[in-house]
Nucleic acid binder design. Sequence first.
DNA 1: GGGAGACTTCGGCGGACGCCGAACCGTGGC
DNA 2: GCCACGGTTCGGCGTCCGCCGAAGTCTCCC
Lengths: 237, 237
Amino acid sequence: MSAQPLARLAGLLADPTRAAICLALLDGRAWTAGELAHHVGVVASTASEQLSRLVAGGLLVEERQGRHRYLRLAGPGTAALVEELAAFASASSAPELSAPAPRPRNLRESVRRSAEARARTCYDHLAGALGVALADALLARGVVTDDSGLAVTAPGRTWLAGIGIDLDGTRRGSRPLVRSCLDWTERRPHLAGVLGAALRAHALGTGWLEPIGIGRALRITRPGADAFQDLFGITLT
Amino acid sequence: MSAQPLARLAGLLADPTRAAICLALLDGRAWTAGELAHHVGVVASTASEQLSRLVAGGLLVEERQGRHRYLRLAGPGTAALVEELAAFASASSAPELSAPAPRPRNLRESVRRSAEARARTCYDHLAGALGVALADALLARGVVTDDSGLAVTAPGRTWLAGIGIDLDGTRRGSRPLVRSCLDWTERRPHLAGVLGAALRAHALGTGWLEPIGIGRALRITRPGADAFQDLFGITLT
DNA sequence: GGGAGACTTCGGCGGACGCCGAACCGTGGC
DNA sequence: GCCACGGTTCGGCGTCCGCCGAAGTCTCCC
């Protein structure tokens, strides 16, 4: 109601350093303070201050282990908020907000980017070309419908259970069962929410996907490619 | 992807004055620059600067008429974003973010607040005790379901058409048919999206509700009270 | 045409903020 | 016990930002 809380929350994300930290944490993992400092390009002391601020504001939670301080986003709700703001910002038509050409600086960077564009983690669900293709496939097969708001159909639920994804088993607090999340590289929606998280967990659990290095990029394994083809009709180029 | 756009967008809402402006505009109307300046308690020149900034950032759009400059939120998406952030901020458990006791300063203010708590506009849909009661009623009657994401049921659509609310007629771009929006006074969800907007439009069009003064508060008329009772089973205290 | 009113531009003030380097504190390894 | 190392605290610097008042521009109305 009052403007103060809104301004303070927005203020937490209003700094490029803090914003970059939150975006990095969208990969869903817990990072150490040092990793984050290096990743966003500030000195350790600066990162420490900003991290404390984000924790105090409730956006991040910390976990201390020995001489390390691990940080991650406070929860799915927080991740969804950051996602949404980032998507809105990058989709904004205002030229004022568009990025000043963030092109890759070297080959390594370029390779990483193309891998991320193909398949990556977005907090706890799948994004990139694979994520968007999955969303399309599930819509086309009637597992998910968008008639009046995104929803999982009754037959869809059964079908998912048949391939080992049990949505009933997952306790859902107030978290939506399925949610749309705008994909930054594809500029089209992929699936988040409980279903999105379950899909990612299943793909990693069965070995369809595996992480590449420490980033958020994912590799599609040989059995994974077969599974996506057979079950979802997705042919990967 | 890059942190810059995110930080800039958040920065627009990171100032109490700009945040208050956006919250005021959540009533869905177009305000003049002077009204906004007075409402948020800054001098005209200050408001002018901040408004220009919000327009440049794409959050607001302006319309010049004679010597007046009318401002409103850029669209439903923008309103949803502001709503969501505000809800997240006020629901945040972090004591750091909670408001420092914004109690009413006089009787007039107090009266206005209680009217707003009963029924008010939230951008283009209904909020307050009435908004929440409507959401409950529509869920209880099966017009809307929350089984797997909020959705309008097939019989619900027919029932709505029967009382004069035609959802098919409204062109929906990428806007969700029905969406949940956390109510600030009730701390429970009410209905937004195309359905929420249609409900409000219908209630105002049929005279069930009428605006009180220039604020966002709404008065429930005598026929309105009857209609809410007969059609939705809502008894207003 | 003159004047009132809505809005904007500009200069300047004060405070807040983000950054860094240096010193400090704990933990873990040798 | 010592050292390396991750992280934190502190002081200080420069910048940015929001605010106001005063002057200026434009529109409408008489």
